[in-house]
Write a protein that binds this DNA or RNA. Structure first.
Length: 550
RNA sequence: GCCCCGAUGGUGAAACGGAUAUCACAUCAGUCUUCGGAACUGACGGUCCAGGUUCGAUUCCUGGUCGGGGCACCA
């Protein structure tokens, strides 16, 4: 319907000689204004130098004629020249019937281009435990991947794990110090990292040993060391994979630092010869001053690559593995500056590769009580948090599977409800809300609707359409537009905002209207099915589980 | 010091230059619990400051205040 209105407005503007005017057809802020509104008359009035109200009047008449009175109940002009369109009962009913009929397809975009996109996120540091901050990138990355897929794009997910470098050396040093030759848990490794990290700061001798260890890992010739490294990495990664699975994420490609160092060094050295990089104090740096980005070291004076060089190598590696049209990289926003430098350098090395890369920065997860630092070891690990919330959800859910679904839903909702770049304040004392503005609220509305459907007698009596249009219907029909926009803007929060409104309207409808055994029962049941499809699809796009019961 | 990002009711968010700034939480007051109360209804309360552009600014521009992040051998 939105598209039909778009076209009708565009046709009208073309006739008026203002075809290049940009305008929007959108949902009005307030429902009393109608189902759709457009600012076309305002925009065109400015360009043509005509009175916007007059233009709006003739646009309104034109729209009513073109769309037809069976489709549109009325078109009005308001304010400085908005044209508001209210859909006819029949059009609304058709949309609801469509939502019901399409089921799990409802809301999906049409595959028009067959694009291929790689989304990179979660980027775990092997040898460290996953802390709550990692949760943000993981959850956002998964939601963005799913939204992108819904628009008909093929998505490959990749994650770039840190398995080499000073932090790894610290963990290995700590393991050796503790006399551990065969680590068995990720926690054990996390503790070793904390020990190594502290000693690195306070103990000069330890610092030298750790630096040497770092070199040795790059060299890879010490068999005993490399064996410990391999085992440690595997144990760490097993833990990450366990949490990813819990969160409904999987990766098509798992890349590691160690896969990219060789290519990274080679490409940067090549760039050095071309004058893209320069030598400074024995290190290879990218001088970004002229481009307005930070100057950064790509290869250290000890000939080891930094993260920046590895990122360059990774860009090539990804292209080699799975050529794509676009690469979305989700990281914390503290990396924004670093990313700009890498992108500037890559822009000179390989302009086509750089052009298709897009950085999506996520906010921090901040604790209300003090800062977290994995160095000091006072982090809340992701698995601890999840366990806590599961415990809380278990108070109302005996089924452990459901408790897990509710807990994951609560955590994901907390993260996804806000725009990706902004920080998330997290109060570990109050923990997570399971009611009101929360994931479980959405899940609960869905469960109740399913429960209603389960109780309805499956009759095929003829459907009578009620004369009045329920508010829930008018919210429901906008779902595909919201999905399209959230997908296009990589903004899962827009979908979250929509779903919380939808759930509220459903609960309101539910409390006011009798469904099973009420008047217009068949129609209301269809509406309930449409709601179930919409909520199920919406939650699935966000990666929030949809329990059957709770 | 330089660079980037942000500032919307007590709290967390929405508003792609448009209407009386939207939603939720919290608080207060109700519903009443006969299709599941993790619910519903109502009240309260807000755009950091000063200019500018515009018919119209939370949105764009300039300056300021406050907060967060980054800035050569960490990731």
């Amino acid at each position: 319907m939105e598209k039909r209105i778009q076209k009708a407005v565009a046709d009208f503007l073309a006739k008026e000689g203002a075809s290049e005017v940009s305008f929007v057809v959108e949902r009005p802020a307030e429902m009393v204004h109608g189902d759709y509104t457009t600012n076309a008359a305002l925009a065109a009035g400015k360009l043509l130098g005509r009175n916007p109200r007059e233009l709006a009047d003739s646009l309104a008449t034109s729209l009513l004629n073109v769309l037809g009175e069976t489709a549109v109940s009325h078109v009005t002009v308001a304010g400085p020249g908005f044209v508001n369109i209210t859909l006819a009962r029949e059009t609304v009913s058709l949309a609801i019937a469509e939502a019901d009929a399409q089921g799990s397809e409802w809301g999906k975009g049409i595959s028009e281009n067959g694009q291929c996109v790689i989304v990179e996120y979660s980027n775990p540091n092997a040898f460290k435990e996953m802390h709550v901050g990692h949760l943000v990138g993981t959850v956002v990355g998964e939601a963005v991947s799913r939204l992108t897929e819904s628009s008909g794009t093929t998505v490959m997910r990749d994650t770039f794990g840190g398995d080499i470098g000073p932090n790894v050396a610290k963990a290995l040093w700590g393991l050796r110090k503790n006399g551990i030759t065969e680590p068995t848990t990720a926690h054990e490794i996390g503790e070793a990292y904390v020990i190594g990290s502290n000693k690195y700061e306070t103990d000069a001798e330890a610092k030298i040993e750790i630096d040497e260890l770092n070199q040795a890992i790059y060299a890879g010739t010490d068999r005993e060391l490399m064996e410990l490294w391999r085992k440690g990495r595997e144990i760490s990664m097993e833990e990450f994979r366990r949490i990813w699975k819990l969160l409904g994420t999987h990766f098509d490609f798992e890349f590691f630092d160690s896969d990219t160092t060789e290519a990274g060094v080679r490409i940067v050295m090549d760039g050095l010869n071309k004058g893209i990089f320069e030598k400074s104090d024995g290190a290879v740096i990218y001088n970004g001053e002229a481009k307005g980005v930070h100057t950064m070291v790509f290869i250290t004076s000890h000939n080891t690559p930094t993260y920046e060089a590895k990122d360059v190598g990774l860009a090539f590696l990804k292209e080699e593995r799975w050529p794509s049209d676009k690469v979305i990289i989700v990281t914390g926003n503290e990396q924004t500056g670093r990313f700009k430098t890498v992108l500037a350098a890559l822009g000179e090395l390989a302009p086509l590769l750089a052009a298709k890369m897009e950085h999506l920065a996520t906010g921090f997860l901040k604790l209300t009580s003090g800062k977290m630092s994995s160095r000091e070891g006072n982090v809340i690990t992701a698995s601890e948090l999840i366990e806590d919330i599961i415990k809380k959800a278990s108070e109302k859910n005996e089924d452990p599977l459901v408790a897990e679904q509710v807990a994951v839903g609560a955590i994901k909702y907390m993260i996804l409800r806000q725009s990706p770049g902004s920080d998330i304040i997290f109060d570990p004392e109050k923990s997570l809300s399971l009611e009101g503005d929360s994931g479980p609220y959405l899940q609960y509305a869905l469960v109740r609707a399913k429960s209603v459907l389960a109780q309805s007698a499956v009759g095929n009596e003829k459907m009578e359409t009620p004369g009045e249009v329920y508010v829930i219907e008018r919210v429901l029909l906008h779902f595909p537009e919201v999905v399209a926009r959230a997908s296009h803007e990589l903004a899962p929060n827009l979908l979250v905002t929509y779903l919380i409104e939808l759930a509220g309207q459903w609960n309101s409808f539910y409390s006011k209207e009798r469904i099973v055994g009420g008047d217009h029962e068949a129609y209301k049941l269809m509406l309930a099915r449409a709601f179930v499809s919409t909520m199920t699809n919406g939650l699935t796009l966000l990666g929030i589980p949809t329990p059957e019961r709770m």
